[in-house]
Design a protein around this nucleic acid. Structure first.
Lengths: 106, 106
DNA sequence: CGGAATCCCCATGGATACTG
DNA sequence: CAGTATCCATGGGGATTCCG
């Protein structure tokens, strides 16, 4: 019992900002979708329905700004794909899925 | 390529509600604190500073309502402790911590 | 198709003061 | 010590409309 110290809040502690970073309503689900393959905007919109176009657009933009995905404009249209950083969240999201399916049976 | 199906949004899909459940600004950090031992209100308040008393109180109440912790009133005062459900989140939170410390070096 | 613009609501979170 | 009571600012999220 040399130390009974609790972790003190520290703005630079990564965990303290984590909820803010990927706490968005759709962030985790978008990463899940893109895990399989790059997706088009409308494609994401359909599969994440009932998300609105505005919210999806904003979310995608902030995720791109944070380096979680890249937006690519091709001849056939616009496509979104995970970056390495975005992909590195997959195990965590999967763990969250597992936890949720085991404990949140509503 | 029998199925190229993306996961479709489903309100009953556990993952779709996960951000809402533990997406609170302080939820994860409270669980972290209580992992070591039960804590008093003022204790949590100090270590999570700058959280306000109101926000901490509200968060603790909703977490109790969701079954993540229990509030116990003893002779010496009030104490908060993790339930089994709350404790089951520890590995996930630790994984998030690890991920954050490796990728969010701001 | 892939958004941008606009308007709006309200839940989250915070500041301050007060209480048993 | 452990909160409650007010009040308030912010913005995340949504509905609708418009555009190249």
């Amino acid at each position: 019992m040399t130390t009974d110290q609790l972790p003190t809040f520290d703005p630079r502690c990564p965990m303290s900002t984590f909820p803010v970073q990927i706490g968005g309503r759709w962030t985790a689900m978008i990463i899940q979708c893109l895990d399989r393959r790059p997706c088009r905007f409308g494609e994401l919109r359909r599969h994440l329905s009932p998300v609105s176009a505005k919210v999806l657009s904003e979310t995608l933009q902030s995720m791109e700004a944070d380096g979680y995905l890249v937006r690519t404009e091709t001849a056939e249209g616009v496509s979104y794909a995970l970056t390495d950083l975005g992909g590195s969240l997959i195990p965590l999201i999967r763990a969250a899925r597992t936890w949720a399916s085991e404990h949140l049976d509503d």
